[in-house]
Design a protein around this nucleic acid. Structure first.
Length: 614
RNA sequence: GGGGGUGUAGCUCAGUUGGUUAGAGCGCCAGCCUGUCACGUUGGAGGCCGCGGGUUCGAGUCCCGUCACCCUCGCCA
């Protein structure tokens, strides 16, 4: 199958001619066809497999372009036959010979080069190879630990090469798109100032100022705003970002964003530019047409209908509010939730009653509990329309209205959570995710793009009891909400927009505050004193007072884009050298202890004794 | 920090109720083989059963601890 993909890698036009000028090889291993019959060629690559039949030896030669069969037969010089016999997997060789037609019946339709073979007349071993830890050409995929430790071997695998080429193509589309729209690519520093809000910083000690530290950027947020104040108008950068937080399948400590900022814009301008990119990427990478504009949901709507701010819209299972109806029942759990200001909400799972055993329902209950719920009410609709379930007998008087509200029919399953709004959101969101996957409610090839807008400006900060920024402290409130900024922060909505692809946050941006008075108000609300604000963000406040245009932007998670467009499950498969869940690099051994001399130079003394070398 | 999963040959895995000498496929080494393409075939080598402790006459198997990797909650402005 991957042979077909190799074809896509073939560069058009000048690339071919340029490669012909190379000295060691005339063609790549994915290039020769019947039309080349009789040509004298030279190929270089890795030995993928050897099939030694004594009198005739076949060698599959592999490079990033594909695979070509070399044949060494009785007509080959004895030295070549001997050399071919000695060759082993992953050796790097160069073969010269003529392109020959494979005898009738021996062509290989699975290979784009399967019509031909190269009849070897000269064979040079460019480099031998030790027996590899695993074979890149093998069908069985080694465990990830082994792949990460021998990453260079893993990256030889066609699947990984496809991923890296996909990434390269997507980034090129991004660069072309923004270049054509007049954006300027500006690099911003990696060594910056630590800002304790947000994620944990990666710190870099200063040698010239002991006790002081740089921080690696969590994002180029402030720099790009300052570029707007500097008049660059439209900025773009493929930016490495660093956040020292715990990892996930879709989170790495260092990751890449397509960072974008624009002046004299409103949200629709930024959204429009990104929608153009979405359409273009989907067309060029997947060959699908994405109708624009993309659907937009408000944050409130998302939480009501899906319980999450990045809902997977590839399937239904929308949340239904049952507070008014179920609150009338005698069921203690329902009444209790209502009385303490909570909500009763549920989802209808059509036709699922028979599919879920008691054990399955216990598992779903565990999912709800993991989401913070104290339990899960499950109900099945019998053929006669009656409810069945542990609490069915508690539904006196509300059984039919409940059924009507959920739209349940015989054979359906209903899952209901009664708790605070936040808990019902969390639990039902997790149930939705689980059910969507377990019941196969969506096509794995489907791509769903949407925007979530009108996020709250602030969320309650459980640690401080104050307010915390939902996005970041530079987010502008909706113009209509500026007046209630201080009076009712919870009700204040931001001009913020998240791009959601298949239930994954693929990008997020905001219109920024561009006047220092509003910025200072927001800092104050966030509990950042005037002195602290001046110390940490004085340059921003100064810049805001020196002619700051209205501006806003967005950052797209490139790793996630590639993962999603490549239909992959892990971000690590689109990063050449990723880190493990403990943020270590199994290949290089980073992070590592350093010489005491280095520490002394930096004015640093470690508190934890260094681990004993293994 | 919490929950879950995995760890046995270079790789992928099996290993019964605790019981003799821990197996298979691939790979590796050697022989045979002139049309294979996951070549075939014959033979061979290869094991700290993650590590440490415990229970037991006896531990890959049971218990405790620990390490690594993966998934996940918290966390990720």
């Amino acid at each position: 199958m991957f042979e077909a993909l190799f074809r896509q890698r073939e560069p058009a036009g000048p690339g071919l001619a340029e490669r012909r000028t190379l000295v060691l090889r005339t063609h790549t291993c994915g290039e020769l066809r019947s039309s080349d019959l009789g040509s004298e060629v030279a190929l270089c690559g890795w030995v993928d497999r050897v099939r030694d039949h004594k009198g005739v030896i076949f060698i599959d030669l592999r490079d990033r372009w594909g695979r070509t069969q070399l044949v060494v037969g009785p007509e080959s010089p004895p030295a070549v036959l001997a050399a071919a016999r000695a060759v082993r997997a992953e050796w790097v060789i160069r073969a010269r010979g003529a392109v020959g037609a494979r005898p009738a019946g021996t062509t290989n339709p699975k290979l784009v080069t399967g019509e031909i073979e190269v009849v070897v007349r000269e064979l040079d071993v460019l480099n031998e190879a030790e027996t590899p830890a695993f074979q890149p050409g093998a069908t069985e995929l080694p465990g990830e630990e082994v792949r990460l430790k021998h990453r260079w071997l893993d990256l030889r695998r066609p699947a990984m090469q496809d991923n890296m080429f996909l990434r390269s193509r997507i980034v090129k589309i991004m660069r072309d798109h923004f270049d054509e729209l007049g954006f300027i690519d500006v690099e911003t520093p990696m060594l910056g100032r630590s800002t304790p809000e947000g994620a944990r910083d990666y710190l870099v000690p200063s040698r010239l100022d002991h006790g002081s530290f740089f921080a690696l950027p969590q994002s180029p947020q402030l720099y790009k705003q300052l570029l707007m104040m500097a008049g660059f108008d439209r900025y773009v950068q493929v930016a490495k970002c660093f956040r020292d937080e715990d990892l996930r399948a879709d989170r790495q400590p260092e990751f890449t964003q397509l960072d974008v900022e624009m002046s004299f814009v409103e949200a629709d301008d930024v959204i429009g530019v990104i929608e153009g990119l979405v359409k273009r990427t989907a067309r060029e990478i997947l060959g699908i047409d994405v109708p624009l504009p993309l659907p937009r949901l408000t944050w409130d709507e998302c939480m009501e209908r899906f319980g999450h701010d990045a809902p997977d819209l590839r399937f239904g299972l929308e949340i239904v509010d049952l507070t008014a109806i179920a609150g009338e029942s005698d069921f203690r759990v329902f009444r209790g939730a209502v009385e303490s200001g909570g909500r009763i909400r549920g989802v209808r799972v059509p036709g699922a009653a028979a599919k879920f055993s008691r054990k399955d329902l216990d598992e779903l209950t565990a999912v709800a509990v993991e989401g913070g719920a104290k339990g899960l009410v499950w109900l099945k609709v019998e053929a006669d329309g009656s409810w069945v379930g542990p609490v069915a007998k508690n539904l006196t008087g509300v059984a039919d209205p409940l059924k009507a509200a959920l739209g349940c029919e015989p054979g359906d399953l209903a899952l209901i959570v009664a708790d605070s709004f936040d808990v019902t959101c969390k639990a039902l969101h997790m149930l939705r995710k689980r059910l969507g996957a377990a019941l196969g409610l969506y096509d794995r090839d489907a791509m769903h793009f949407s925007w979530v807008v009108d996020f709250p400006m602030f969320a309650a900060d459980v640690e401080t009891g104050g307010w915390a920024s939902m996005h970041h402290p530079f987010t502008a409130p909706r113009p209509a909400d500026v007046e209630i900024l201080e009076a009712d922060p919870a009700a204040c909505r931001a001009v913020a927009y998240d791009l959601v692809i298949n239930g994954s946050e693929a990008g997020g941006g905001t219109i920024r505050i561009h006047d220092s008075a509003t910025q200072e108000k927001v800092f104050k609300l966030l509990g950042i004193s005037a002195e602290t604000a001046r110390e940490r963000f004085g340059f921003l406040l100064d810049a805001l007072r020196s002619g700051a245009p209205p501006h806003g932007g967005i950052a797209l998670g490139i790793d996630r884009w590639v993962m999603l467009f490549g239909k992959l499950d892990s971000i690590r498969d689109v990063i050449a050298f990723p880190k493990t869940q403990k943020a270590s690099d199994l290949m290089t051994g980073a992070p590592s202890t350093v010489d005491t001399k280095q520490l002394v130079e930096l004015g640093i003394r470690t508190v934890v004794p260094p681990p004993k070398p293994a």
